[in-house]
Design a protein around this nucleic acid. Structure first.
Length: 472
RNA sequence: GCCCCCAUCGUCUAGAGGCCAAGGACUCCGCCCUUUCAAGGCGGCAACAGGGAUUCGAAUUCCCUUGGGGGCACCA
């Protein structure tokens, strides 16, 4: 199946756009091709640098295309802004067969008529005045320099019907469509038209896009009929909204793909999340891989209802993917977020110890900081401090150069027991003395990384707070 | 205002007339494991939007209401 992804460069790729791209990729991956086409026809809406960022985001996700602005292909160019000649020739065909006509109404007049129409109900349309013009008169006014737009002459009293690949059968009456604009008075082709022309020229078999574009479909089917080409198949994906119900693009959260990557999400996690958003695996696997999804995907299992982006779920999936990483990949991933501080022996051990702790890779910064920087101004209640004295004694009796956390914790525990104290109290106090935190990396790891000497320095700097009641 | 689409736990969803006093996953809460923190294991809370109709029987079909989404441009 030949499919395409054709984003406008109005902003960064977000969760919604990435999902559309991914689903197209999934369809293409089962014997087909994905065409990447950039819809940059409107320069005022196109952000500079957006194309490079888009391609980078797509590549990072593992979405591949066989034809595109970077890759070229048999139907190049793949930027809409460079295809105006092709658009013009399609328009010429339509005007030759009188499927399109010049409309001399000003934008203002049309808007006024529309306001009237809305009061009465029904679709807006240029009233038939221009459509009824003879070709001689139309010609004459045009050569006299009167500005005009090209409109498509929508057939009257017809119903356009198609089997939408995700929504099922959809039918639209032609009177609800109105004669839409193909090219505006300054010669710019509209998106419905340009995108239809490109899909036809690039031999796209199935158009899968967001349901915001659903209203373009009956128009494009009509265009195909008028041009005498076989109408394409269409499928419209339900929208993704942000947790507060607002449209995704307007929400403030972390929905940009670039942002997710920079924060330390793994591409595999984002892909799994995206695939499972509005689609369910027929085999009900809990952690499907990309290839599982590629093999099992079909559009008929895509939900028709709009769905809500759930950042918490994405985080959970990411934490799971991080935990499953091989050692080297983990070190590489986490290491990218911090430089190794000098004077610390085995920092890889820290990465490994943090494995179960990190949700997104950038979390390593905070986690490592508790290990690297000494906590300041710590004061402990009397009971904890008493236990800490025993802990301290145990460490002093150990080899000062020891980094064997396992053995050290065992030794501390024995000493605490021998002193008639609850081992837990001492170990918790030790954790706080070392990092200032009540939770965090395993103590064994902490001692393995900082060693006896550093641990003793931190313990010695704590103070007793006699006024402070012991918590819990 | 008009047109179209959609509606199952808080979220993502399973569900094609009897297998459903509705199943899974995430979150949350307990318990277990444990030399601390996690992870892990086990268990729990939690939904068919409301009302009619069809049927022996409805989450599943139909209608209305409500709610949500999209569209109605010389925007991409």
């Amino acid at each position: 199946m030949r499919v395409r992804f054709s984003p406008a460069l109005t902003g960064a790729l977000d969760i919604g756009g990435a999902r559309t791209a991914l689903l197209n990729h999934l369809i293409a991956s089962r014997g087909g091709a994905l065409v990447l086409r950039i819809e940059d026809a409107d320069p005022t809406r196109t952000m500079s640098g957006a194309e490079d960022a888009l391609l980078a985001d797509l590549r990072w996700l593992g979405i591949t295309w066989s034809e595109g602005p970077d890759a070229g292909g048999p139907y190049a160019p793949y930027r809409q802004s460079e295809r105006t000649d092709a658009h013009a020739s399609h328009l010429a065909e339509l005007t030759a067969s009188h499927a399109a006509y010049r409309c001399f109404c000003t934008a203002k007049a049309v808007a006024a008529e529309r306001a009237e129409d809305e009061k009465a109900g029904g679709a807006s349309r240029c009233h038939d005045t221009c459509r009824a013009l003879s070709s001689e008169e139309s010609e004459a006014r045009a050569s006299a320099g009167e500005p005009y737009a090209w409109r498509f002459a929508v057939p009257v009293a017809e119903t356009v019907l198609w089997e939408d690949a995700v929504q099922g059968e959809i039918s639209v009456r032609s009177e609800d469509i109105g004669d839409f604009v193909l090219a505006d008075s300054d010669g710019t082709f509209t998106r419905v038209f340009a995108s239809w022309a490109d899909d036809v020229d690039m031999h796209i078999a199935l158009v899968v896009r967001g349901d915001g574009d659903i209203s373009m479909t009956p128009r494009q089917i009509l265009l195909s009929r008028a041009a005498g080409v076989e109408p394409l198949a269409y499928g419209h994906l339900p929208s993704v909204t942000s947790p507060d119900g607002a449209p995704l693009c307007e929400s403030v959260g972390h929905t940009g793909i670039t942002e997710l990557r920079d924060t330390g999400y793994l591409a595999s996690a984002v892909v799994e999340y995206l695939a499972l958003l509005g689609w369910s695996d027929p085999d009900d696997r809990e952690n499907p891989t990309l290839s599982d999804v590629e093999q099992a995907f079909s559009l008929d299992r895509v939900s028709k209802a709009p769905c809500v982006h759930d950042p918490e779920r994405l985080r959970t999936i990411n934490a799971r993917h991080l935990r499953a990483l091989p050692h080297d990949a983990l070190v590489r991933t986490l290491g990218a977020y911090m430089s190794r501080p000098p004077g610390w022996a085995d920092f890889d051990a820290l990465f490994e110890a943090a494995r179960d702790e990190v949700v997104v890779a950038s979390d390593i910064v905070t986690i490592a900081d508790f290990v690297v920087s000494r906590p300041s101004q710590l004061s402990l209640d009397a009971e904890a401090h008493a236990a800490l004295v025993v802990v301290s004694a145990a460490l002093e009796a150990a080899d000062p150069g020891s980094y064997n956390g396992e053995a050290l914790v065992g030794r501390i525990r024995r000493k605490l027991k021998a002193a008639g104290l609850q081992p837990n109290v001492g170990l918790e106090a030790l954790r706080i003395a070392l990092t200032g935190q009540e939770s965090g990396l395993p103590l064994t790891a902490l001692l393995s990384i900082m060693g006896v000497a550093e641990a003793l320095i931190r313990i010695d700097s704590t103070q007793v707070d006699t006024h402070r009641a012991r918590k819990r």
